[in-house]
Design a protein around this nucleic acid. Structure first.
Length: 987
DNA sequence: CAGCCTCGAGTTCC
DNA sequence: CTCGAGGCTG
């Protein structure tokens, strides 16, 4: 760290302090909500002075010899919020605050800075801090410019600035990225930073950056409720806290954090003026800005004594929360039922509210503690279900109209049903677990007077059983069958009429775990069923259920919002006499991922040991259970690249990418091009995107290098770097909305192309080998496989398809068949040739051929096949293998009757030979048959046959041989000789 | 009590 | 950006 810069900075700082007096700091940290403190109100240009830096960064800046001019150039807008803040606190805040800024900074300063740290400690904090700032500033401008592409506040100045130090820019960027990452994850970052720095800065995440002073500030402990009633919106990068940390902090102190700025927002928490929507909107709405330091101060100040006002407010809110009593009391149900079923639940709740007294509630719930809360507070009426009311309504409607739609019209109205796609015969409820799918199904059917037959499909496995037939009881699936079909039979009988039944199939996706049979069976049941069927599954897009959704009315349950859940949880906790903060409940709701059941269980569990639950309890308890969902490589990539990909924490990203370290990179590599990065907000000509793409590609390439090191030299410790380079960085760069690059492409992550290609390569090789063998067997040419593919295929394709396109059908077909026979190509070979000759942009020659011609060709070839004798190595069976049954051969021979009259010319001579061979091998019956057909056979086989084989074209693989090896070997040489002769003739 | 407004969360997949 | 939920007001 060069001392002149430091000196310069001091000077600079003194200058700056004069201008900084504009901002005001609130006297009180957390004022009552009525008068919002203006922590920082400035919309002026100086906002653009950013305080984005880190110690690493500084080091790099000096190393990089960022020029003095550059620094100087930047000095004008140096003032940064935090600096002002500190100064202000010096002037205006009591002493107890002062130490913190000092302390917070130098926890882990680099070694080379240590020498001056103690000295500066004695000075005013303001003087210390800027040291960093100045440098950072010079860098920041550069960094930011590329980091924050959509920053419209970024003025011409910035443009110019970046322009000048062109060389420094990218490097800084690069240096910064890895470092930031490393800092975020803990240790081991330094070296990575060096490398990344050298690599041209692909590590720019294009999204939230790490706080410059991460972990350097001491997080204060304030009064638990000191932020109650305040709503915060976090924007941009804070000084020392990760966004999550800040959120946590606020929530722990009773504050609320939302994602969007609205009128309810109390503060916009931002350390810098990110020129984004949030801050502009905040300005519009007059919402005060709050820096991180401001927030910390607020919390700190609250500690000694909470302001009475807050208490009051808190109490008020508590009271407010108390008022809406439990919705679930039987009372309410009654009332609810009185009203028409369709009436909204809002009014019902409202009308009931006053009627319920606390005591009532108590005796309602207090009596039997044996019941688990999940049971106790299970919704009793459909409208009790949290969230998804519209879905419940749809379900209700569907069920209500089911009978008229399907039962009445069952005799006449099948057509109507099919035409009316809206009325499917079944519904498919989908959504993550615990959000009330089965509850809704049950409640709705109960409410409509249906008798619910609940079947958990996962324990009724076995399609075989289902096949046994209807009416065999004992097994669930059979019961289902019985139920469905019996009702069908008895639809007019009393049993099914009066207590209407509904079948609820739970966990449909579990049902078909092994095979698709379960679902197929279910579909069959749906088709037949005379009772409504409600299917429930967890994810609708599972492959297994693909066929099912066609028959179902899909209803997608969403996670209830955390507010909704918190509300209900609040009721429960109150009923149970549990003291829980509302924010805490929201957090709980979030942590359990919308799973009401789990939330309640957790609550009950915690209630055993404590009667007051606060934020940290939830945090600790549920921290580990955060990820329980198993993720496939696909979902992992989805998440990484999703529009929310930027919000993932680094460890989450690593978890995702490590979920399948082999597959995820492949999928990433296959799909990253398809994403339109959100970080390039407005990208007029796509240049930025291209840049990002290039960087992503480069990173993927690096990942490959890592991978080689890992695999070849067993450097397993590199695996994290590998997944970093090959997954996380590309994802960080490119995450955004997926778009299709070609019309008609499914907008879905493709499977890793490599694997697919690998397997198609294998397959194609096999196919090619088949062709090759046949080709060689024709003795028309001897080439190796590659030559065949490269030199012959084009011609073969031409020969095979051109006639079909230009010549009259009959002749063409005949010609092609002839050609195929000449080269002893089977029809599969034909397909292979067409397939392997396909190239993008080249028209498939088969496309222009009328299907009539195609079928004629097939037919002709098949006809020929019965008599065709193909000599091919893959046609030979070993003696041990059984011969084809006679019947089959007969059948094959059968249709030969009327084909190929024309071809007859040449090969008579060989026929004798062939015939005799065949006869030798075959049973008598066949031989006679063969003998009868001989003339035709001859016509077909204009080549001499060494190995003579009846080829069943339809099933080449299992085609039956009628040839012993002996005869083959004997015939082989003959065939070769004769073949040549005939060929020549033919040509 | 019904419609409008505002807030907040979610956003794909045939 | 769009949709649902909830709250407010005429």
């Amino acid at each position: 760290m060069s001392s002149d810069i430091r000196k310069w900075f001091m000077k600079q700082h003194d200058k700056g302090s004069g201008t900084a007096s504009k901002t005001a700091v609130p006297e009180k940290p957390s004022p009552p909500s009525s008068e919002k403190p203006v922590i920082r109100v400035d919309t002026s240009q100086e906002n653009s002075g950013r305080r984005k830096t880190s110690k690493y960064f500084i080091a790099s800046s000096t190393k990089e010899a960022s020029s003095q001019e550059m620094v100087k150039e930047k000095k004008a807008p140096i003032k940064t919020p935090s600096k002002r803040k500190i100064q202000n606190s010096n002037e205006e805040t009591p002493d107890d605050i002062k130490p913190t800024p000092i302390k917070k900074k130098f926890h882990k300063v680099d070694d080379d800075e240590d020498d001056f740290v103690p000295a500066s400690k004695e000075k005013k904090p303001a003087e210390v801090k800027p040291t960093k700032k100045i440098k950072s500033n010079s860098n920041i401008e550069i960094t930011r410019n590329s980091d924050k592409v959509d920053d419209n506040l970024e003025g011409e100045i910035d443009e110019k600035d970046t322009g000048t130090p062109l060389k420094a820019g990218p490097r800084d960027k690069g240096g910064r990225g890895p470092v930031a990452v490393a800092a975020g994850r803990g240790r081991g970052g330094g070296r990575g930073g060096g490398r990344g720095g050298g690599r041209g800065g692909y590590m720019n995440f294009g999204e939230r950056k790490d706080p410059p002073h991460k972990g350097e500030k001491e997080v204060p402990e304030g009064a638990p409720e000191c932020l109650a009633g305040l709503t915060f919106v976090i924007s941009g990068t804070l000084d020392s806290l990760e966004r999550e940390e800040a959120e946590d902090l606020i929530k722990r102190h009773g504050g609320r954090v939302t994602s969007a700025v609205s009128k309810k927002t109390s503060f916009l928490l931002a350390d810098e003026d990110v020129g984004g929507r949030k801050s502009s909107k905040a300005k519009e709405l007059g919402i005060p800005f709050l820096t991180e330091d401001g927030l910390l101060d607020m919390i700190r100040k609250s500690e000694p004594a909470r302001s009475s006002k807050q208490e009051e407010q808190k109490k008020k809110t508590l009271e407010r929360m108390n008022k809406p009593k439990i919705n679930i009391s039987p009372h309410k149900v009654e009332v609810k039922k009185d009203q028409s079923a369709s009436s909204g639940r809002k009014d019902a709740a409202k009308s009931v509210k006053p009627g319920i007294s606390p005591d009532k509630r108590k005796c309602q719930y207090g009596d039997h503690n044996s019941l688990t809360w999940t049971e106790k507070y299970r919704p009793k009426v459909p409208s009790d279900i949290i969230g998804n009311q519209s879905i419940v309504k749809q379900l209700h409607e569907w069920l209500m109209h089911w009978n008229e739609n399907f039962l009445h019209s069952s005799s006449k109205g099948k057509g109507k049903k099919q035409s009316d796609s809206a009325s499917k015969k079944a519904v498919l409820l989908s959504g993550s677990p615990g959000i009330g799918k089965s509850t809704s199904a049950k409640l709705v059917s109960q409410m409509l007077g249906f008798q619910a037959m609940e079947v958990n499909a996962s324990d009724s496995r076995g399609k075989a059983d289902a096949k046994i037939g209807k009416g065999i009881g004992g097994n669930t699936s059979n019961t289902v069958k019985e139920l469905v079909s019996n009702v069908a039979l008895n639809s007019s009988m009393n049993w099914s009429k009066h207590p209407k039944s509904v079948l609820i199939m739970d966990e449909v996706d579990g049902m078909s775990a092994g095979d698709r049979g379960g679902v197929a069976d279910l579909i069959a049941s749906i088709k037949v069923s005379k009772i409504p069927i409600i299917c429930i599954c967890n994810d609708r897009y599972s492959q297994k259920l693909k066929s099912l959704v066609n028959y179902c009315l899909p209803l997608n349950f969403r996670k209830p919002t955390k507010q909704q859940m918190a509300k209900r949880l609040k009721q429960i906790t109150e009923a149970e006499g549990l003291q829980v903060n509302e924010i805490t409940l929201e957090e709980l709701a979030e942590r359990v991922n919308g799973d009401m059941r789990m939330a309640i269980n957790q609550l009950q569990y915690m209630s055993v040991s404590q009667s007051v639950i606060n934020y940290d309890d939830i945090r600790q308890r549920l921290l580990s259970s955060a990820k329980d969902e198993d993720i496939s490589p696909f979902t992992a990539v989805d998440k990484l690249f999703g529009y929310n990909g930027g919000r993932l924490r680094m460890d989450e990203r690593i978890d995702l990418s490590m979920s399948d370290p082999d597959l995820v990179p492949l999928i990433v590599q296959e799909n990253y091009i398809n994403y339109r990065p959100t970080s390039i907000a407005k990208d007029d000509n796509g240049v930025k995107r291209m840049n990002f793409l290039a960087r992503a590609a480069e990173s993927i390439g690096d990942g490959d290098i890592f991978n080689v090191q890992i695999r070849r030299y067993r450097q397993w410790q590199l695996s994290q770097s590998s997944s970093f380079a090959s997954c996380i960085i590309p994802a960080a760069l490119m995450h955004g909305q997926r778009e299709t690059l070609e019309p008609g492409e499914r907008n879905f992550n493709r499977f890793g192309g490599w694997l697919g290609k690998n397997s198609t390569t294998g397959k194609n090789l096999r196919l090619l080998e088949d062709v090759h063998v046949h080709f060689l067997a024709s003795h028309e040419a001897k080439s190796d496989r590659e030559t065949l593919r490269l030199d012959y295929f084009t011609l073969l394709l031409k020969q095979l398809t051109d006639p079909l396109q230009v010549m009259p059908k009959e002749i063409a077909v005949q010609k092609v068949v002839e050609f195929m026979d000449t080269y002893s190509l089977s029809q599969e070979d034909f397909d292979t040739i067409v397939e392997l000759s396909k190239f993008k942009g080249h028209p498939n020659p088969m496309d222009s051929i009328p299907s009539a011609v195609k079928s004629a060709l097939t037919k002709a070839y098949k006809q020929g096949s019965s008599s065709r004798v193909v000599r091919a190595a893959d046609m030979i069976t070993l003696p041990g293998l059984k011969k084809a049954p006679k019947k089959r051969i007969a059948a094959i021979l059968e249709p030969v009757e009327n084909g190929l009259a024309e071809e007859n010319g040449e090969a008579l001579a060989e026929n004798e030979e062939e015939g005799s061979d065949s006869e030798d091998d075959n049973d008598d019956g066949i031989s006679t048959e063969n003998a009868e057909r001989k003339p035709q056979l001859d016509l077909l086989n204009n080549k001499p046959k060494g190995i003579q084989v009846q080829l069943d074209l339809k099933s080449n693989g299992k085609s039956n041989m009628k040839k012993t090896p002996a005869s083959k070997s004997k015939g082989g040489s003959q065939a070769a000789a004769a073949d040549k002769g005939s060929r020549k003739r033919k040509r």
